[in-house]
Design a protein around this nucleic acid. Structure first.
Lengths: 247, 247
DNA sequence: CGCCAGCTTGAATCTACTCAAATCTTGTGG
DNA sequence: CCACAAGATTTGAGTAGATTCAAGCTGGCG
C-alpha cells in the first residue's frame, strides 16, 4: 500500500466509490509527488495555474494578503483536497496558497479515466464551495468562541473524511496566530478563548495534538446554527443517509 | 433588441466576447423567462438542482439560515450571473437562494453551442469564486465602515459589468437589515455607518438610488486592502489590461 | 386616517482589540 | 551542557467598536 497517497485515496473513495481504473490512475500519479516546504507558495495570486493537483500530505492555506502583516486565511487545504481545478484555458489564480507544513502533492489524473473519479472530483468541488459558505457564515454570525469551535469541528470532519481523524482527535499544525488569521480574530483573543475552552473542559491542545473532548456537546453548543457540511448532503442519491438537518 | 436579456447579454459578452452562435443561443432562452416574486425561494437548500440558469433581471441573495430570525447572506446574485452550475448528475443545493426583488431568469444555454459561451461561463464561475474570497476577507479583516464601503464598491463593479451602473451610481434594492445580514453587522450599526458616510459626504442613498460620491477616494480609503476582483485579472491573455495590483 | 415596515436616535453594556510585558519552547553555537 | 536568540504562548489593564434594548420617527398604502 502506498502510504503517501493513502489519505488522498481514502478521501476520493469516500466521495466517489472508486473503481479499479480510478485507483490505478491515482496510484500512477502518487509515484510522482512534488514537495513544498513550509512557508513556500504552492500557488501565487495572479500567476497562471498549471493544472489540477491533488494534495497528498500536509496542510496549506489559501490566503488573501491585505497589507503589511495583515492577512486573511480563506480556507485550509488538507490531504485529499484538489486545487487548481478550473474550466478555463489560461486561468490566473485568484488567491495565493501557502504551505503550512511540508506539503506533498501530485498531478490530479484526468477525470476521463473513470466515471467514478469524475464523480469524486465533482463532489470535491461541491464540498469546497460549501465550506466557503460555512466560512462566510462563521465570520459573519459567530462570536469568538463559536468561530474557533466551529472551525475545529470542520477540520475534524474533513480530516475524518481522509481517514486522518477519529473520535475527536486530530493533528492541527497551526499556531494560534494562524488560527487568528482564519477566524478573523487577534492572536491574543484566540489565546484567551482556547484557555477558556481548556478550563471548561471542552478542548485539549498539546503541541499539535487537539482533542475535542465532547464533540456532540460542542456541536450542540453551536446550536442548529452549526455550519455543517456533509458529503451525503450534497447528493440526492444518498439523502436517505442523512439525519434531518433541522427540527 | 430584447430588453429583458440586455443586462445578461452585456455581462456575458464582457466576459467572453460572444460570437453569433452564442448570442443566438442566449436570445432563444431569453424568450422563455421564469418569474419569481420577492421573498420566494429560487433554490432551496437540500433540494435537487434542476440545471444551470441565468439571471436576467432583479436581485437575489444566497443565504444560510442560522436559527430563528438569524441569517447570513453569502453573496448577492445579480443580472447576468449564473446559478445552479454544477458538475454532478443529481446534485443538491448547499444553500438557499431567495429573490429580493422580482426576479426573471431563464435556462442557461448549454455551453456546447459556442466556444465563446463556454469561456464566458468559465469566467463567470471564476469570478463568483473570487467574490466569495472577497466576502471572507471583508468579514474577517474589515471594520463596519470598510465592510459597507467595500461591499458597495463590489456591487458597483459587478453591476457595471452588466451595464447597470456607471460613474458611482447604482440601484440597490436592499433594506438596511439586508445590508446588515450581508456584512455581519446589526441593522442599527449599519444605520449609524450610513449616516456617517452621508455626513462625511462619501455617499448618497435615496430610496434605492445609491451614489458613491468619490469612487477613487473610497477605494483609497480601503487601502491596498481593497478586495477588488477584475475580470481581466483572472485571464492571463488580458493581464496587460491591468493596472498593477499592488505598489 | 391609521397602520406597518423601515429608518433613526439615545443610553448602557460588553465583546474583542490594543498595547505592553512576562513566560515558555525550541533550536543553535560556544 | 548551558547560554542565548527567536518564536510562540500567556497574562494584565485600558480602550474602542459594535451590540442590545428601547423608543420615536417617517413615508407609503389600504
Amino acid at each position: 500500500m502506498n502510504t503517501l497517497g493513502a489519505a488522498a485515496l481514502h478521501r476520493m473513495n469516500a466521495l466517489g466509490h472508486l473503481d479499479d481504473a480510478a485507483r490505478l490512475a491515482l496510484k500512477i500519479e502518487f509515484e510522482r509527488p512534488f514537495t513544498y516546504h513550509p512557508q513556500s507558495e504552492i500557488q501565487q495570486e495572479g500567476q497562471a495555474i498549471t493544472g489540477p493537483r491533488l494534495m497528498l500530505s500536509g496542510w496549506a492555506a489559501r490566503v488573501r494578503i491585505m497589507e503589511e502583516g495583515d492577512r486573511q486565511i480563506i480556507n485550509f487545504v488538507l490531504p485529499g483536497d484538489l486545487i487548481g481545478f478550473c474550466d478555463q484555458e489560461k486561468p490566473l489564480a485568484s488567491s495565493s496558497i501557502i504551505a503550512i507544513t511540508e506539503v506533498r502533492l501530485c498531478t490530479a489524473p484526468a477525470p476521463c479515466h473513470s466515471e467514478r473519479l469524475s464523480e469524486a472530483y465533482a463532489m470535491s468541488r461541491a464540498l469546497e464551495e460549501a465550506y466557503l459558505f460555512s466560512q462566510i457564515a462563521r465570520l459573519g454570525r459567530f462570536d469568538a468562541r463559536e468561530r474557533i469551535a466551529d472551525l475545529l469541528l470542520e477540520l475534524h470532519d474533513r480530516l475524518e473524511l481522509a481517514g486522518l481523524a477519529a473520535a475527536g482527535s486530530l493533528t492541527v499544525p497551526l499556531t494560534q496566530e494562524m488560527l487568528a488569521d482564519a477566524t478573523g480574530l487577534t492572536p491574543v483573543h484566540v489565546n484567551r478563548m482556547l484557555k477558556q475552552a481548556r478550563e471548561v473542559g471542552t478542548l485539549s491542545w498539546k503541541n499539535t495534538e487537539v482533542t475535542l473532548l465532547d464533540v456532540p456537546e460542542t456541536r450542540r453548543s453551536l446550536g442548529n446554527r452549526a455550519t455543517r457540511v456533509s458529503a451525503a448532503a450534497l447528493r440526492s442519491d444518498r439523502a436517505h443517509e442523512l439525519a434531518p438537518l433541522r427540527h
